[in-house]
Amino acid sequence: MILAVASGKGGTGKTTVSVNLARQLGSGVQLLDCDVEEPNTNLFLDCTEPEEEIFGIPVPCVDEALCDGCGECGRFCQFHAIVSFGTKPVIFPEMCHGCGGCMAVCPKRAISEVSQRMGLIETSRSGNITLIQGRLDIGVSMAPPLIRAVKARLQDGMPAILDAPPGTSCPVIATLRGTDMVVLVTEPTPFGLHDLKLAVDMVRELRIPFGVVVNRMGIGDDRVYAFCGKEGIPILLEIPYDRRIAEICSRGELIVDALPEYSSLFATLLWNIKELRGMERRASYVRSAN
């Protein structure tokens, strides 16, 4: 099973939930930090030295001797990464999405591809956890290709937890696509609720089963609960608002290791996720039987 941990609002506790859940699982699990603009999951784990792999996307390179300046490449490119006015095309590698379209439409076959570095994929281990992190280079703005590359490292047959970036934009969609279930982490505040609603709309659009984890239980108000009740969204766990949790997180430690009194939280979450997964499977069986 591939589980994604997402949120609308940033700073709700996605990484805290992901990393503690991975440790709680006990058996072999893949943990993917898909927040490639600022990966931080490694800070919570004593990891082996990471194996680094350079990731790049193919961008066009024009052979001037072959190019007759027809401009087909520029007309094709929707991202304005290649522009031509009867002259040698001007290329903006930072705008290129690596689709290869310009190369395909070039009548003179003057375009080849070169790799443009975007970032690193780091793989390391910590006990039962295999951590795969994407790390976008500074100044690179396109996260989805690197996120897809991180996900392509997933091995079949071993469960995976994907720590998503915050928000509801392309990097999050790239993370959530193809996952079996999503946990949306929120906090019971007006801001948390506002962004939770956006995240719920997104996950429903993607048709992925999901539940909610309420973090910092005890602050704010009860509107998150009212919303989930009205929408029939299961609340999988509540994490109390407790200074000790904040302290161990800021030290880069795990709740399940450092606070034994709270270790049952993540056992409960694991149980509820399995229950929800079972219910979804039965429901989908009934749907297909009908």
Partner: peptide, 8 residues
């Protein structure tokens, strides 16, 4: 890419 498009 607004600058690129305007320039085009």
């Amino acid at each position: 890419g607004a600058g690129i498009q305007s320039a085009e």
